[in-house]
Design a binder for these strands. Structure first.
Lengths: 331, 331
DNA sequence: CACCTCTATGTTAACGAAAACATCTATCTG
DNA sequence: CAGATAGATGTTTTCGTTAACATAGAGGTG
């Protein structure tokens, strides 16, 4: 716990001279510098960043709040963010809210104690008025959530167009009876995917069949259930759009279990492009969202908030279809 | 940026009285307190944690360094740690070293500037002498790496016994020709798994066949290569032990692609119990390691370092076999 | 009533660093 | 050679909070 003072005493100079050596600023005689540097080394001195932070009233820390770090979706965004922040001399304080609004707020509130220079919220659960509250008190960025308030800076990709493109792709491959494995109906991103499905059908003059839409959870098992639901029907879809890969995977596994082949019997398109979708057989055709870039952009936008001279590079944040082997052309 | 001073001025009292109200300590007249509380609310005051940290010379922050947060293995450990830390009033500063020694050291070194009260290194890459250096300067805990130095506190599960148990299980199911899909030979955990394989064979008097051991990378594709390697042999193993699930998954997928059935034609055991191993068909028999608990224990051990009165709960950190459907009894 | 104790509040110093300002010498310029 | 200037170093104050110490009135005890 060496301090400037101790160095100064040992070197027989004032703290200010030592400080000048440490920060390499101002005038210091070459020999004095040498002596002080030797003492610094001898006593293994390192500046106390807390004291510095207090003085400059900035900590060079950014608080990142995610609903669940075990979800690779968030892990990848976080990685994109921390990498950029670190390159710019900022550290990431990280917190996992477990998807609970209470935790989320409690954690965010800590940021108001000036332990961080800014807060980035990933896919937060709190009500939108809360973001106005926070934003008024600390540099704030909300990622992956649509925000209506003009005052709150945010990054959001609308999933509707890419979902529509995914269904367009099925239609282009000759499918007209297309099932929707629709996931939960209380998550915005998911609803936008459903909207894309509906929009595509409409654009191609295909009437919507309510029977062809199955709503469920978000998990692998929900894909299994979806298969069971559809397999009981007489007239079944030839192709399916699952609003996330995990459900698509469950659906495909169950289909194969029951002796159906993908894509010769059934075509499937997923959404998210999780790691596993590449690895199954056949590999899943899906929609990739730029998680890493979203995280990186969030970092840059935050840096610019804190220092307007920062250059924010161009990111084209668009979802992209990844065509693999789970769709068959039936024209 | 309201400070105690401003509150004091507005309420016409000294800063100390305000401080007493904020910290709820010492004597304060009920009416004075009420008045001060009103002013605090009016000015939206929050104590500056940086100033507090400086004064108490402790930040209530712990630095966590992982090689790659996108790897669910680390994400789960991190979650175990942060959850416990948060419950004890500590925040997690998080950093991703990208598996590079240089980054790892650079990040760890920051901790010496007293911005954190302790450091937890997950599966670090640095040479072991470095841990002595760090440990002498900051409360340090090393997780998932064998450390010989007596001075460095660490948490480590030897993978050999559980690997041995996994192979024992294959042998108990009547297999004697057992292939090893061995992964890279420069990673300690992986070598211990290989040692377990060898130990089990030896214990059962089964001679080791060098041809039956395939060494490769760590990925899904390496499992695919492994299948290709073994399928060229005349006399093939009836069962395989893969030193991680990802390779087992690649191996199984390729086997199924080539028309072989699991487990009727080939039995496979993996290691790690990643999420996907439950989801394939047949579900993979594998070895589960308590990632979450390791993370939680790391947190408790760190807390105890910082405050010896903390109770560290009992964790039985042992790998456990998870028997599912990828092994057939051929006796 | 002298003295103690409890209640209530204020003053000073400290945490470690650094910006702002001050001092002093040596050298240079007109 | 007076005065400006660059070089080298020191002193004071500030960042916001709080521990330690100081003060002072009210009420109680012997």
């Amino acid at each position: 716990m060496t301090t400037l003072k101790e160095i100064a005493k040992r070197a027989n100079v004032s703290v200010m001279t030592v400080s000048r050596v440490v920060k390499n600023s101002g005038y210091v005689n070459a020999e004095t510098r040498k002596l002080i540097e030797a003492v610094i080394k001898e006593l293994d001195y390192r500046p106390n960043e807390i004291a510095r932070s207090l003085h400059r009233s900035s900590t060079k820390n950014i608080l990142l709040i995610v609903p669940d770090i075990e979800n690779p979706f968030f892990a990848e965004m976080i990685k994109g963010t921390t990498t950029v922040l670190r390159q710019h001399g900022y550290q990431s304080i990280f917190a996992d809210s477990d998807g609970e609004i209470g935790n989320e707020k409690e954690i965010a509130e800590r940021a108001l104690s000036r332990i961080v220079d800014g807060v980035i919220l990933y896919c937060p659960r709190a009500e939108s008025a809360y973001f106005d509250f926070l934003s008024a008190r600390v540099p704030l960025l909300v990622v992956d959530r649509r925000i209506t308030s003009h005052a709150v800076d945010h990054i959001y990709i609308d999933n509707k167009p890419s979902a529509e493109a995914a269904v367009d792709y099925l239609i282009a491959n000759g499918h007209r009876d297309i099932g929707l494995i629709g996931g939960p109906q209380n998550v915005l991103a998911n609803l936008r995917r459903k909207s894309g499905y509906l929009a595509s059908l409409k654009a191609h003059g295909i009437p919507v069949n309510d029977q062809f839409m199955f709503f469920c959870g978000f998990e692998f098992e929900d894909g299994v259930s979806a298969f069971e639901y559809f397999s009981q029907m007489e007239h079944r879809p030839t192709a399916y759009f699952a609003t996330n890969d995990l459900m698509a995977l469950g659906f495909i596994q169950q289909a194969q279990e029951k002796g159906l082949a993908i894509p010769s019997d059934i075509s499937v398109v997923g959404f998210d492009n999780i790691a596993m979708s590449r690895l199954i057989s056949p590999a899943l055709t899906t929609v990739d969202n730029p998680r890493h870039d979203m995280g990186a952009l969030a970092a840059f936008r935050m840096l610019k908030k804190l220092d307007p001279t920062v250059e924010v590079p161009q990111f084209s944040l668009t979802n992209r279809m990844v065509i693999r082997g789970s769709v068959r052309n039936i024209t």
